[in-house]
C-alpha cells in the first residue's frame, strides 16, 4: 500500500493571521479558530502547494526550518502535529 499523502485545506478556506510565535487560523468550514505554533503553520504552508508524503514533507521542512531532528524526534513530533491538524480538519489525507 502506498504511503498516505497529506494536503492542507484550500487556502480560500483559511484566514491566517500571524501574531507572534503563535498564528491564529480561522477555518471557514468549521468556524473554529485555531492558535498554532511551530511547526504547524509551516506544515500548512508546505502542504498548501501540493500534497506530500510524510518523508517529502519532512524534507521540505528541514530545508527551510531547524527541526532539531538529529535523534529522529522531529519525525515523531511531525506525526503528532499532523494527526492534530487532521483531526481539526486543517489537513486531509488523500
Amino acid at each position: 500500500m502506498a504511503a498516505p499523502r497529506y494536503r492542507a485545506a484550500e487556502a480560500a478556506l483559511l484566514i491566517v493571521e500571524p501574531l507572534d510565535v503563535f498564528t491564529a487560523v480561522f477555518h471557514r468550514p468549521s468556524g473554529v479558530t485555531h492558535l498554532l505554533n511551530e511547526p504547524a503553520p509551516q506544515i500548512l504552508e508546505a502542504l498548501g502547494n501540493e500534497p506530500l508524503e510524510m518523508e517529502a514533507l519532512l524534507a521540505w521542512l528541514a530545508e527551510r526550518y531547524d527541526l532539531g531532528d538529529a535523534d529522529g524526534s522531529g519525525t515523531a513530533l511531525l506525526c503528532a502535529r499532523l494527526d492534530e491538524l487532521e483531526a481539526a480538519g486543517l489537513v486531509e489525507r488523500t
Binding site: 501574531l19 507572534d20 510565535v21 503563535f22 491564529a24 468556524g31 479558530t33 492558535l35
Partner: peptide, 18 residues
C-alpha cells in the same frame, strides 16, 4: 502583553465571538 495573549484574552472576554 504579547499579541497572542491579547488575542486569547479578547476571545475569552467575548460572549459572542464564536
Amino acid at each position: 502583553l504579547a499579541a497572542s495573549e491579547t488575542f486569547v484574552r479578547l476571545t475569552q472576554a467575548s460572549t459572542n465571538y464564536v
